[in-house]
Computed example of a mutant assay.
Amino acid sequence: MEILVQLDGKPLAASHAYARALAISLFTWRRAEQGDPADGDLQGWWAEGLDAALPAGIGSRLWLLARRRLDADAERDAHDYTREALQWWLDSKQASAVEVTVSRLGDDGLAIRVLITLRSGKTLTADLSDIWSLTHGV
């Protein structure tokens, strides 16, 4: 899987604060919720609930896709999990808009495109070329 993060169309290094924030948001395992297909293994960020001053719900539930087959429901959940993971950008007023697009790549691939309009008016984009391969270890 390839991840391309850009700010106003210019590629960002993986070490850039925005690229790191996106990576943490999307690839830290958020705790499963009641009703998620987690088979009793709720996962979650190790510091979740440790300190009331820390934000709740760090990361995404994209890891849950590893237990699924690629169908319309998984595609919808990938969208919802991604959107949920990026909600903090809006809540903290770092961004004025967050858009998520999920695209099927044939029978065995799923791409995600994220577009975040920052408060400054600049646009942060992230293209995840095949999240399905990452979650399924392909």
Rank of each mutant, 00 (worst) to 15 (best):
M1H: 07
I3T: 10
I3A: 09
V5P: 04
Q6C: 00
D8L: 03
K10I: 13
A14H: 11
Y18C: 01
A19Y: 01
A21Q: 08
A21I: 05
S25I: 00
F27E: 00
F27S: 01
T28K: 11
W29F: 14
R31D: 08
R31S: 04
R31Q: 14
A32S: 04
A32C: 07
G40N: 09
W45A: 02
G49L: 12
A52Y: 14
A53N: 13
L54C: 09
A56S: 13
I58H: 12
G59D: 07
S60G: 04
L64P: 00
L65C: 08
A66R: 15
R67H: 09
R68H: 08
R68Y: 00
R68D: 02
R68M: 09
R68T: 07
L70R: 00
A72S: 12
A74T: 11
R76D: 11
D77S: 11
H79R: 14
Y81E: 07
Q87Y: 15
W88H: 13
W88T: 14
W88E: 07
W89M: 04
L90D: 07
K93R: 15
Q94I: 10
Q94V: 08
A97R: 15
A97H: 13
A97I: 11
V100S: 01
T101N: 15
V102K: 03
V102I: 03
S103R: 15
R104P: 06
L105K: 07
G106H: 01
D107T: 05
D107A: 08
L110K: 02
A111T: 10
I112W: 04
V114F: 09
T117Q: 15
G121M: 05
T123S: 10
L124H: 01
L128M: 01
S129N: 03
I131P: 00
W132Y: 00
W132K: 02
S133F: 00
T135R: 14
H136A: 04
